[in-house]
C-alpha cells in the first residue's frame, strides 16, 4: 500500500511556519527560564503588565512607531500616486524612473550616514520629524515605482474621456482615477507602512537613540539579552502588520481576485 505523505508534509510545514509566532507569545509570557529547566520558573501575564510601566516605555514606543509609520505611509502613498503620474507621462520617463532607484543602491545605514550632515544642518537630527523625512526618502521612490504601472495609455484614455464628457481635472481624479486606483492605493499604503514599521538602520542613525521606535526597542532588548521583553516587543511589533494584512485581505485582495 502506498503511503500518502502529503498531509504529513503539509502539517509539518504549517507547524514550522507557526512555531516562531507561538514561541514568541510563550516566551513573552515566561520569565526565570534558565538552563537546564525544562519549563520556565514563571508563566503568566507579568511581562505584559509591565508594558504599562513607564520605565520600560513599550507603549510609548508602540504609539511613536504607529505615528511615524502612519505618517510615512500616508504621505508617501498619496504623493507617490500624484507624482508618479507626472513621471509616467514625462518625455524623459526612463531617466526619471532610473533616479527613483537611487536610494536602493545604498544600504539604509550608508544612506543615513550620507544624509546625516544635511539633517544636522536642517535641525532634523534626533527628532521624530527627521525620522519621518528619512523614512519617506525610502518609501517615496518605492511608491513612485509601485504606481508607475497604473498610469497606462488606458488610464490616460479614461482621463481624456472625462474631459470630453465635460469634466475637470479634479473631477477626473475624484470620480475616476482614485476609485480605479483604490486597490493599489491600499496595497501601497500597506507596503510603505511595513517598510517604515520595520525600518532599523536609517532610524537608528537619524534618530540617534532619541527616537525609540518599537523596532529599535526590540534590538535594545536583544542586545541586553532580555529575551522575555524582546519577545513581548516582537509580539507588539507584528500586531499592526497582522491587522493590516487582515484588512487588506478582507477589503482588497478578495475584490481584486
Amino acid at each position: 500500500m502506498r503511503v500518502n505523505w502529503k498531509p504529513f508534509v503539509l502539517t509539518l510545514v504549517v507547524l514550522l511556519t507557526l512555531f516562531p509566532f507561538v514561541y514568541l507569545v510563550l516566551l513573552s509570557l515566561a520569565s526565570q527560564w534558565r538552563f537546564p529547566a525544562l519549563l520556565p520558573g514563571y508563566f503568566g501575564l507579568d511581562n505584559w503588565r509591565t508594558i504599562w510601566a513607564s520605565e520600560v516605555g513599550l507603549v510609548s514606543s508602540f504609539l511613536l512607531s504607529t505615528l511615524i509609520s502612519l505618517s510615512v505611509a500616508t504621505v508617501s502613498t498619496l504623493s507617490g500616486f500624484l507624482i508618479s503620474r507626472s513621471v509616467a507621462y514625462h518625455p524623459r520617463k526612463r531617466l526619471l524612473t532610473l533616479f527613483t532607484y537611487f536610494p536602493y543602491l545604498l544600504a539604509p545605514v550608508v544612506l543615513a550616514a550620507c544624509l546625516s550632515y544635511f539633517f544636522l544642518k536642517l535641525g532634523l537630527f534626533g527628532n521624530v520629524t527627521g525620522v519621518i523625512v528619512a523614512q519617506f526618502m525610502i518609501t517615496f521612490p518605492y511608491s513612485l515605482i509601485f504606481f508607475s504601472s497604473f498610469w497606462s495609455e488606458r488610464t490616460k484614455s479614461f482621463e481624456e474621456l472625462v474631459f470630453t464628457l465635460g469634466g475637470t481635472r479634479r473631477q477626473a481624479f475624484v470620480k475616476v482615477l482614485l476609485p480605479l486606483a483604490r486597490g493599489m492605493l491600499l496595497i501601497c499604503f500597506f507596503q510603505t507602512f511595513l517598510i517604515s514599521w520595520f525600518e532599523y538602520g536609517l532610524t537608528s542613525i537619524i534618530g540617534v537613540g532619541k527616537v525609540q521606535t518599537l523596532t529599535i526597542k526590540v534590538f535594545l532588548f536583544i542586545k541586553e539579552a532580555n529575551f522575555y521583553y524582546g519577545a513581548l516587543s516582537c509580539c507588539l511589533l507584528i500586531f499592526p502588520p497582522v491587522v493590516l494584512l487582515y484588512l487588506n485581505k478582507k477589503y482588497v485582495f478578495n475584490k481584486l481576485v
Partner: peptide
Amino acid sequence: QSPSDRHIVYLYQEDLLFPH
C-alpha cells in the same frame, strides 16, 4: 477652448466603461 468646454465627445475603439 479646453476639451471640457467644447461639448465634443470623443469615443474610443475600446468602450472604456468605468469598471467601478
